[in-house]
Protein backbone atom coordinates (compact mmCIF):
# COMPACT_ATOMS: atom_id res chain seq x y z
CA UNK A 1 0.00 0.00 0.00
CA UNK A 2 2.87 2.36 0.70
CA UNK A 3 4.23 1.96 -2.82
CA UNK A 4 0.83 2.69 -4.34
CA UNK A 5 0.39 5.79 -2.18
CA UNK A 6 3.74 7.20 -3.21
CA UNK A 7 2.97 6.58 -6.87
CA UNK A 8 -0.36 8.35 -6.68
CA UNK A 9 1.24 11.29 -4.93
CA UNK A 10 3.75 11.73 -7.75
CA UNK A 11 1.04 11.09 -10.34
CA UNK A 12 -1.30 13.76 -8.94
CA UNK A 13 1.41 16.35 -8.39
CA UNK A 14 2.69 15.68 -11.92
CA UNK A 15 -0.80 16.15 -13.38
CA UNK A 16 -1.33 19.38 -11.47
CA UNK A 17 2.07 20.75 -12.54
CA UNK A 18 1.31 19.89 -16.15
CA UNK A 19 -2.10 21.56 -15.81
CA UNK A 20 -0.80 24.91 -14.62
CA UNK A 21 2.40 24.99 -16.65
CA UNK A 22 5.48 26.89 -15.50
CA UNK A 23 4.69 27.93 -11.94
CA UNK A 24 5.53 30.77 -9.71
CA UNK A 25 6.26 30.12 -6.06
CA UNK A 26 5.56 33.69 -5.09
CA UNK A 27 2.19 34.12 -3.37
CA UNK A 28 -0.08 36.52 -5.26
CA UNK A 29 -0.97 39.86 -3.73
CA UNK A 30 -4.45 39.46 -2.17
CA UNK A 31 -6.51 42.66 -1.86
CA UNK A 32 -7.59 42.78 1.77
CA UNK A 33 -9.72 45.90 1.73
CA UNK A 34 -12.37 44.42 4.01
CA UNK A 35 -12.70 45.59 7.59
CA UNK A 36 -9.49 44.60 9.38
CA UNK A 37 -9.02 43.36 12.93
CA UNK A 38 -9.13 45.99 15.65
CA UNK A 39 -12.67 47.32 15.27
CA UNK A 40 -14.56 48.66 18.28
CA UNK A 41 -16.24 46.03 20.42
CA UNK A 42 -19.92 46.63 21.15
CA UNK A 43 -21.20 44.28 23.85
CA UNK A 44 -24.80 45.18 23.01
CA UNK A 45 -24.21 43.84 19.49
CA UNK A 46 -22.87 40.59 20.97
CA UNK A 47 -25.93 40.24 23.21
CA UNK A 48 -28.28 40.97 20.32
CA UNK A 49 -26.61 38.47 18.00
CA UNK A 50 -26.48 35.73 20.66
CA UNK A 51 -30.13 36.25 21.49
CA UNK A 52 -31.09 36.38 17.82
CA UNK A 53 -29.78 32.83 17.45
CA UNK A 54 -31.66 31.64 20.53
CA UNK A 55 -28.84 31.64 23.07
CA UNK A 56 -29.81 32.93 26.53
CA UNK A 57 -27.59 35.77 27.74
CA UNK A 58 -26.89 36.68 31.37
CA UNK A 59 -24.78 39.68 32.47
CA UNK A 60 -23.47 39.66 36.01
CA UNK A 61 -20.35 39.86 38.15
CA UNK A 62 -17.94 36.95 38.45
CA UNK A 63 -19.24 36.35 41.99
CA UNK A 64 -22.81 35.98 40.69
CA UNK A 65 -22.05 33.24 38.14
CA UNK A 66 -22.94 30.55 40.70
CA UNK A 67 -26.40 32.07 41.04
CA UNK A 68 -26.97 31.81 37.28
CA UNK A 69 -25.72 28.22 37.23
CA UNK A 70 -28.10 27.45 40.08
CA UNK A 71 -31.05 29.00 38.21
CA UNK A 72 -30.33 27.01 35.04
CA UNK A 73 -29.01 23.69 36.37
CA UNK A 74 -29.84 23.64 40.08
CA UNK A 75 -30.52 20.11 41.32
CA UNK A 76 -29.01 18.54 38.22
CA UNK A 77 -25.82 16.69 37.30
CA UNK A 78 -23.09 18.77 35.70
CA UNK A 79 -19.76 17.89 34.11
CA UNK A 80 -16.96 20.45 34.27
CA UNK A 81 -13.47 20.78 32.78
CA UNK A 82 -10.44 20.33 35.10
CA UNK A 83 -9.83 24.03 35.82
CA UNK A 84 -13.21 25.69 35.90
CA UNK A 85 -13.23 28.23 38.78
CA UNK A 86 -14.80 26.51 41.78
CA UNK A 87 -16.80 29.58 42.83
CA UNK A 88 -18.86 29.35 39.61
CA UNK A 89 -20.46 26.15 40.87
CA UNK A 90 -23.29 26.40 43.42
CA UNK A 91 -23.76 23.76 46.08
CA UNK A 92 -27.06 22.83 44.38
CA UNK A 93 -25.40 21.13 41.39
CA UNK A 94 -23.58 17.83 41.53
CA UNK A 95 -20.44 18.77 39.56
CA UNK A 96 -18.09 16.07 38.30
CA UNK A 97 -14.71 16.95 36.81
CA UNK A 98 -13.94 15.33 33.45
CA UNK A 99 -10.98 13.08 33.98
CA UNK A 100 -11.17 10.84 30.94
CA UNK A 101 -14.83 10.05 31.38
CA UNK A 102 -16.28 7.88 28.63
CA UNK A 103 -18.63 9.40 26.05
CA UNK A 104 -21.46 7.37 27.53
CA UNK A 105 -20.77 8.81 31.00
CA UNK A 106 -20.62 12.36 29.64
CA UNK A 107 -23.88 11.88 27.73
CA UNK A 108 -25.60 11.09 31.02
CA UNK A 109 -24.96 14.58 32.45
CA UNK A 110 -27.66 17.25 32.26
CA UNK A 111 -25.29 20.12 31.65
CA UNK A 112 -21.75 21.43 31.31
CA UNK A 113 -20.15 24.66 32.59
CA UNK A 114 -17.06 26.04 30.86
CA UNK A 115 -15.09 29.20 30.24
CA UNK A 116 -14.35 30.37 26.66
CA UNK A 117 -11.33 31.51 24.63
CA UNK A 118 -12.75 34.25 22.39
CA UNK A 119 -16.14 35.64 21.42
CA UNK A 120 -17.06 37.52 18.24
CA UNK A 121 -19.58 40.31 18.76
CA UNK A 122 -20.63 40.76 15.15
CA UNK A 123 -21.65 37.13 14.65
CA UNK A 124 -22.61 36.11 18.20
CA UNK A 125 -19.95 33.41 18.21
CA UNK A 126 -18.16 31.84 21.18
CA UNK A 127 -14.92 29.98 20.47
CA UNK A 128 -13.58 27.20 22.70
CA UNK A 129 -9.93 26.13 22.40
CA UNK A 130 -9.85 23.15 24.77
CA UNK A 131 -7.79 24.99 27.40
CA UNK A 132 -8.09 23.49 30.91
CA UNK A 133 -10.99 25.82 31.83
CA UNK A 134 -12.90 24.65 28.71
CA UNK A 135 -11.97 20.99 28.56
CA UNK A 136 -12.09 18.33 25.92
CA UNK A 137 -14.40 18.96 22.96
CA UNK A 138 -16.69 16.10 23.92
CA UNK A 139 -17.88 17.59 27.23
CA UNK A 140 -19.53 20.57 25.53
CA UNK A 141 -21.15 18.32 22.94
CA UNK A 142 -23.12 15.58 24.66
CA UNK A 143 -24.91 17.26 27.63
CA UNK A 144 -28.11 19.05 26.66
CA UNK A 145 -27.35 22.39 28.38
CA UNK A 146 -24.11 24.36 27.96
CA UNK A 147 -23.36 27.32 30.23
CA UNK A 148 -20.41 29.25 28.85
CA UNK A 149 -18.86 32.01 30.98
CA UNK A 150 -17.25 34.80 28.99
CA UNK A 151 -15.10 37.71 30.20
CA UNK A 152 -15.60 41.04 28.43
CA UNK A 153 -11.89 41.20 27.54
CA UNK A 154 -12.36 38.02 25.53
CA UNK A 155 -14.87 39.70 23.21
CA UNK A 156 -13.60 40.93 19.83
CA UNK A 157 -15.36 42.77 17.02
CA UNK A 158 -15.15 40.42 14.04
CA UNK A 159 -13.77 37.22 12.55
CA UNK A 160 -10.35 38.73 11.67
CA UNK A 161 -9.77 39.57 15.36
CA UNK A 162 -10.69 36.04 16.41
CA UNK A 163 -8.40 34.43 13.84
CA UNK A 164 -5.54 36.68 15.05
CA UNK A 165 -6.09 35.64 18.67
CA UNK A 166 -6.59 31.90 18.21
CA UNK A 167 -3.91 29.21 18.05
CA UNK A 168 -4.52 26.82 15.11
CA UNK A 169 -2.58 24.08 16.87
CA UNK A 170 -5.36 23.71 19.42
CA UNK A 171 -8.65 21.96 18.57
CA UNK A 172 -11.14 24.80 18.07
CA UNK A 173 -14.92 24.82 18.27
CA UNK A 174 -16.79 27.90 17.06
CA UNK A 175 -20.29 27.98 18.54
CA UNK A 176 -23.03 30.35 17.34
CA UNK A 177 -26.19 29.56 19.26
CA UNK A 178 -27.50 26.13 20.11
CA UNK A 179 -27.42 23.21 17.69
CA UNK A 180 -29.73 23.96 14.77
CA UNK A 181 -30.73 22.78 11.33
CA UNK A 182 -32.15 24.41 8.23
CA UNK A 183 -32.73 21.09 6.50
CA UNK A 184 -36.52 21.08 6.65
CA UNK A 185 -37.83 23.63 4.16
CA UNK A 186 -34.80 25.83 4.92
CA UNK A 187 -36.31 27.08 8.16
CA UNK A 188 -33.93 27.26 11.10
CA UNK A 189 -34.95 24.87 13.90
CA UNK A 190 -32.96 24.79 17.13
CA UNK A 191 -31.95 21.54 18.77
CA UNK A 192 -30.56 18.64 16.81
CA UNK A 193 -27.46 16.75 17.99
CA UNK A 194 -25.50 19.27 20.03
CA UNK A 195 -26.69 21.01 23.22
CA UNK A 196 -30.24 22.25 22.72
CA UNK A 197 -29.82 25.12 25.13
CA UNK A 198 -26.86 27.52 25.23
CA UNK A 199 -26.46 30.04 28.05
CA UNK A 200 -23.76 32.68 27.76
CA UNK A 201 -22.82 34.45 30.99
CA UNK A 202 -20.90 37.70 30.37
CA UNK A 203 -18.79 38.88 33.30
CA UNK A 204 -16.51 41.95 33.55
CA UNK A 205 -12.78 41.57 33.06
CA UNK A 206 -11.06 40.71 36.37
Amino acid sequence: MVGRTVNSRELILGRLRAAIGPTTTTPAEVPRDYRPAGGDVDLDVLVHRLTDYRATVHRCSDAEVAKVVDEVLGGQRVVVPPRVPGHWLPATVAAVTDENLTAEQIAAFDGVVTAAAVAIAETGTVVLDAAPDQGRRVITLLPDVHICVLRTDQVVAGAPDAIARLDPNRPLTWISGPSATSDIELNRVEGVHGPRRLHVVIVPRP
Binding site: V30, A159, P160, N169, R170, L172, T173, S179
Partner: peptide
Amino acid sequence: TWRDLEVFLQLLPRASTGERMNPYTSMWT
Protein backbone atom coordinates in the same frame (compact mmCIF):
# COMPACT_ATOMS: atom_id res chain seq x y z
CA THR B 1 -2.65 30.69 5.27
CA TRP B 2 -4.46 30.57 8.60
CA ARG B 3 -5.39 34.20 8.08
CA ASP B 4 -7.26 33.32 4.88
CA LEU B 5 -9.95 31.71 7.04
CA GLU B 6 -11.00 35.19 8.22
CA VAL B 7 -12.27 35.78 4.68
CA PHE B 8 -14.00 32.46 4.02
CA LEU B 9 -15.63 32.20 7.45
CA GLN B 10 -17.34 35.51 6.69
CA LEU B 11 -18.30 34.61 3.12
CA LEU B 12 -19.52 31.03 3.49
CA PRO B 13 -22.28 31.20 6.15
CA ARG B 14 -23.82 34.40 4.79
CA ALA B 15 -23.91 33.06 1.23
CA SER B 16 -24.86 29.53 2.21
CA THR B 17 -27.43 29.28 5.01
CA GLY B 18 -28.00 33.01 5.28
CA GLU B 19 -26.56 33.15 8.79
CA ARG B 20 -23.96 35.53 10.24
CA MET B 21 -22.21 32.40 11.40
CA ASN B 22 -23.27 28.77 11.24
CA PRO B 23 -23.93 27.11 14.63
CA TYR B 24 -20.76 24.98 14.71
CA THR B 25 -17.35 25.18 13.05
CA SER B 26 -14.72 22.59 14.00
CA MET B 27 -11.00 23.05 13.35
CA TRP B 28 -8.41 20.38 14.03
CA THR B 29 -4.72 20.09 13.29
